[in-house]
């Protein structure tokens, strides 16, 4: 057990190397244990804190598990109707071009009901950042099948696994919008290991910084877990995600500075 000697020597304010950022409101997050939302929230807020732009940032929260994101992020937030966050962000960015605008959306929000808004906002080349959390399921409503559900993956509305003959194929919306000319930066990341979390943070920083240059949409997909929807423990669901989600949704940059790049890394 802990030696009191070590504890008293090290546990001082000047020795703190990492603590929860003050831009996250000091209240418990409403997400399930092990959910990737909490990590992405924290990385986003840390990036804003490092860039010093918390007073100049406006976030748009979606409908889904992260609908209460405005309760946790200590910045200006607005709630959009289901799937309409890119439309609202377009209006905000056009009214205040000097503000930093981001939308934070899940796969049921962005890839299902909001497909039209997403694709057209990307195609117009609006100048904001989209953060897209993909867990392959409608997590908030009880684990129903989403457009991003993998073939053969079980959900509460596909209890024998998704049959692509009757239920259609999964939608790779990230690759779809990467081909649009208005999109400048597209990447796919994950948040289940420290290494991937650090990469995600770098991607968020890059996406926010390019808003200063009016280059077009920056789109970050974060492949995440949904342990309660997948009916697994958090550690099991991370392993399942590595084995099943990553082969279908390979991690890495897809478009950098307006040019398509070969998606390189398949996660370890």
């Amino acid at each position: 057990m802990e030696e009191p000697f070590v504890k008293t020597q090290i546990r001082k304010d000047e020795n703190i190397v990492y603590k929860r950022t003050s831009l996250l409101v000091d209240r418990p997050l409403s997400y399930c244990p092990g959910c990737g939302h909490g990590v992405v929230h924290r990385m986003l807020m840390e990036t804003l804190e490092e860039m010093g732009i918390q007073d100049k940032t406006i976030g748009v929260s979606p409908v889904g598990c992260s609908v209460l994101a405005y309760d946790f992020m200590n910045i200006d937030m607005i709630g959009a109707a289901h799937g309409r966050a890119p439309a609202l962000a377009t209006a905000i960015k056009r009214l205040w071009p000097d503000k930093f605008v981001f939308t934070y959306q899940g796969d049921g929000d962005l890839a299902a009901i909001g497909t039209a808004e997403t694709i057209h906002a990307c195609n117009r080349g609006e100048n904001f950042t989209i953060i897209f959390i993909n867990n392959g399921i409608y997590g908030m409503t009880g684990g129903q099948m989403a457009p991003t559900t993998l073939p053969g993956m079980r959900s509460s509305t596909s209890p024998y696994g998704r049959n692509v003959l009757t239920m259609g194929h999964p939608l790779k919306i990230t690759e779809l919008i990467a081909n649009l000319p208005g999109v400048n930066y597209v990447t796919r990341q994950a948040v289940h290991t420290p290494n991937h979390v650090r990469k995600t943070k770098k991607a968020i920083r890059k996406a926010l910084e390019q808003q200063k240059e009016n280059k077009g949409i920056a789109f970050i997909e974060v492949v995440s877990n949904c342990n309660s929807g997948w009916k697994m423990t958090p550690v099991q669901s991370n392993k399942w995600m590595e084995e099943n989600m990553f082969p279908f949704y390979p991690l890495g940059d897809i478009k950098v500075d307006g040019k398509l790049v070969q998606s390189s890394e398949v996660a370890k």
């Binding site: 057990m1 802990e2 020597q9 703190i16 990492y18 603590k19 929860r20 418990p28 990590v39 420290p194």
Partner: peptide, 30 residues
């Protein structure tokens, strides 16, 4: 909880924690 004194203050636990509950310290001991 911390169960031994092998901690090096690498921050891995704090970075992956979804709820951000871990504060990490790093310092010299004589």
């Amino acid at each position: 909880m911390k169960v031994n004194d092998e901690c090096t203050g690498c921050m891995n636990c704090a970075i992956v924690c979804p709820d951000g509950v871990i504060t990490v310290f790093r310092g010299k001991i004589e």
